[in-house]
Nucleic acid binder design. Structure first.
Length: 667
RNA sequence: GCGCCUGUAGCUCAGUCUGGAUAGAGCGUUGGUCUCCGGAACCAAAGGUCGGAGGUUCGAAUCCUCUCAGGCGCGCCA
């Protein structure tokens, strides 16, 4: 309702500017500083006045006269230096809101016609997931929910690098450090008393020391990596079982956070199905890369960085003799003939857009309780009939900010091949890392070097085994939540309490990960992550639980909410200013969900939705405290209040769903 | 050296894309609400030269230039 109303007003303003002054301004709609000053504010007249040489207030008056004719507008006032403040017809607006939730509209800026691919999580399958990975998944999953809520078709991919060095390192650990066979490893995996991903977490850190003790051991990594890529040997068998066992742990961890995927494209299939060979051919044919015959990159296939990070030379050139072929090129194929990571990434990105001319085979990997089937790439067909994967129109890669440089090169690769459109629609959804606060390190008994201690935060490092494991954090949150639940619900069953505690814990965790904007480093701190009060997920959940308790109590007392009592006349009566202001403000805020969603998509900033959830919950809690509903004697006022609560419940539940947060039955 | 990001209340952060009315939250502090639709709540107070200096503008936390401080990138690693 908000989006449609806003669009209507913007359109009218554009027409006014065009017809009266032959201008096509960008129409900004603001919120007035105080609700009493109107529902929407247009600062345009100030700018317009200057451009046409008229007093802003005069232009504002002209515009106001125009807007008064719009259906749904109750009043228009000119204020201050030339603001045009619009007051909506509250009852009409409320009636419109009551009908149904807003669907994606034609002018929805965020909606392409085709499929959107979102790639996220992408954890190296060689150790347990940590909090940094949780941020990636929470952001990616929320983006998926936002896009789907606006009517987009979205495919979620979780790329599995099962043949990379990180897996190779753990394989080295098993084969050479622990001297285990493939059978030993398989036994370890099937041993129910071993948390295999935790086991590998420690082993991975041990391997780093193993290399440090004797630098000649590093060649084991290279050899193992080659064996894994080649296949058909002990190392590749260990790699395969380790990687997929850990993938299952990752999937289980993410499922605890309500994160699901559609497809697991694996590096091994990209390798065996020769995706790179195909991409290499394309890149050569179209001159996107060339063979370097001199300089430090002699013997490599390199790509020119068209307009990379390099600054354009100005008049006075400082004589620092530019290195031949150094600055603005990127090696794609090494002089030994092997492809770099970014080269493989270009091939994968081409496949995502359906531009590679090759496809994977697929087989079902697992099913989620809701019926969604997760598929995995395969080297050959089987009897299953997979949906069409890839061929996206737009691609979001959720990857942390440190990979910006490489993501730019991938996009540059598409451009060099002539795929300008796809390069533009390759979106690096970038976010900052999760680090550990000094206090957090102290809590965990992590020894810090003197220079680390001076820093504001310490980077998580899988290689050093430095970090908070995802499942440990989740377990601890559930434990904290359970303590609270047990204190409040002594008579409920253990299953009930466990379920509620889990929902609260996940609500707290996802909200915590989402409330920071993407370019803020999260300095992780247990005290803040375990907080259930103030600006937190449980605070928002609690608001909805309270709203629902009103209806529960009503029914328990034998009452019933009859929506038919809320007639246009009733809406008009109770929403009228000034007595209706508190109701109207709550209602108006609740109507903005779709607008907030649009904004969050356009700016790729899920934190905006988290912020909104908190504001709406806060506004409701204030309302809840201020007005008694069930004891209300006036039947039509009571019906009106119940109607309002129902709308807030609906919108707030929908908001939480976008954040991947469930509403507990009780709190 | 080059590129990107950050700097707003004691602490943690919104607000910067698209300049606009008295710069907002949470936590913490202090004081209040309390037999209720369950307080994981509500209200109030104190607390800010928006890192600094110029500039553009009727108007700048927001745009431009310079500068200081911190972080992250810049491999024939992934």
């Amino acid at each position: 309702m908000f989006l449609a109303t806003q669009a209507k007003i913007q359109q009218a303003v554009r027409e006014f500017a065009h017809e009266r002054y032959n201008l096509e301004p960008n129409v900004i709609v603001n919120q007035p500083p105080r609700p009493a000053m109107g529902d929407m504010a247009l600062p345009l007249a100030m700018e317009l006045g200057r451009r046409v040489g008229k007093p802003p207030r005069q232009v504002a008056e002209e515009l106001a006269a125009e807007l008064r004719n719009i259906a749904g507008v109750a009043k228009v006032e000119v204020a201050g230096p030339g603001y045009v403040n619009v007051y909506l017809n509250r009852a009409d607006y409320a009636a419109g809101l009551s009908v149904q939730r807003e669907q994606a509209t034609a002018e929805s800026a965020s909606k392409p016609s085709g499929k959107i691919i979102v790639e996220h999580t992408n954890i190296n399958p060689n150790k347990a997931a940590h909090i940094g990975h949780l941020r990636n998944a929470a952001l990616g999953d929320t983006l998926v929910r936002l896009l789907r809520s606006r009517g987009n078709s979205v495919e979620v991919q979780n790329y599995i690098d099962n043949t990379g060095v990180q897996v190779a390192d753990v394989v080295v650990g098993f084969l050479y450090l622990e001297k285990k066979s493939a059978a030993d490893v398989a036994a370890l995996i099937s041993n129910p008393s071993v948390r295999f991903d935790y086991y590998c977490w420690d082993l991975y850190a041990s391997v780093s020391h193993f290399y440090e003790e004797d630098s000649t051991r590093v060649e084991l990594r290279g050899r193992t990596l080659q064996e894994i890529e080649h296949g058909g040997n002990e190392a590749s068998r260990v790699a395969e079982t380790v990687a997929m066992a850990i993938v299952r742990y990752h999937l289980a961890t993410m499922f605890r956070l309500n994160v699901e995927y559609d497809l697991l494209p694996r590096e091994s299939e990209i390798l065996h199905l020769k995706f790179w060979d195909q991409a290499f051919q394309l890149l050569r044919e179209r001159g996107a890369i060339y063979f370097e015959t001199e300089g430090k990159n002699k013997g490599c296939w390199v790509m020119r960085q068209e307009e990379g990070n390099r600054e354009v030379e100005t008049g006075i050139t400082t004589e620092t003799e530019p290195q031949a072929g150094a600055e603005d090129t990127k090696v794609i194929v090494r002089s030994n003939g092997t492809v770099t990571y970014v080269g493989k990434d270009i091939a994968y990105q081409l496949w995502k857009f359906g531009l590679l001319g090759k496809d994977f085979w697929y087989r079902p990997f697992q099913s989620y309780p809701d019926g969604r089937v997760l598929w995995v790439s395969a080297t050959e067909p089987d009897s299953s009939t997979p949906p069409t994967f890839g061929r996206g129109e737009k691609v979001y890669n959720v990857i942390d900010v440190r990979q910006s440089y490489l993501q730019n090169i991938v996009a540059a690769g598409l451009r060099a091949l002539g795929y300008e459109e796809q390069a533009v629609r390759s979106i690096h959804f970038s976010y900052e890392m999760v680090a550990l606060s000094p206090r957090c390190c102290a809590d965990m008994g992590i020894e810090l070097s003197p220079e680390d201690r001076k820093r504001p935060y310490v980077e998580v490092s899988g290689r050093r085994g430095l970090g908070v494991k995802a499942d440990d954090l989740v377990d601890r949150l559930i434990q904290e939540a359970l303590r609270e639940v047990q204190a409040r619900h002594t008579e409920e069953s253990p299953e009930f309490r466990q379920r509620i505690a889990r929902q609260i814990a996940i609500g707290a965790l996802r909200y915590f990960l989402l409330k920071y904007t993407c370019n803020a480093v999260i300095a992780f701190d247990f005290k803040e992550a375990l907080n259930f009060e103030g600006e937190t997920g449980p605070y928002v959940q609690y608001a909805v639980v309270r709203a629902r308790n009103i209806f529960r109590k009503l029914e328990a007392e034998g009452g019933r909410f009859d929506a038919a009592l809320v007639t246009p006349a009733v809406l008009d009566r109770f929403l009228a200013a000034p007595d209706g202001d508190p109701y109207w403000e709550l209602l108006f805020l609740a109507s903005k969900l779709e607008a907030v969603t649009e904004q969050a998509i356009i700016t790729t900033e899920p934190a905006a939705v988290a912020k909104y959830a908190f504001q709406l919950a806060q506004s409701f809690n204030n309302f809840y405290h201020r007005f008694r509903i069930l004891t209300e004697q006036d039947e039509s006022r009571k019906a009106f209040l119940l109607w309002l609560v129902e709308i807030v419940d609906r919108q707030l539940t929908a908001t939480l769903d976008l954040l991947g947060i469930e509403v507990p039955e009780a709190m």
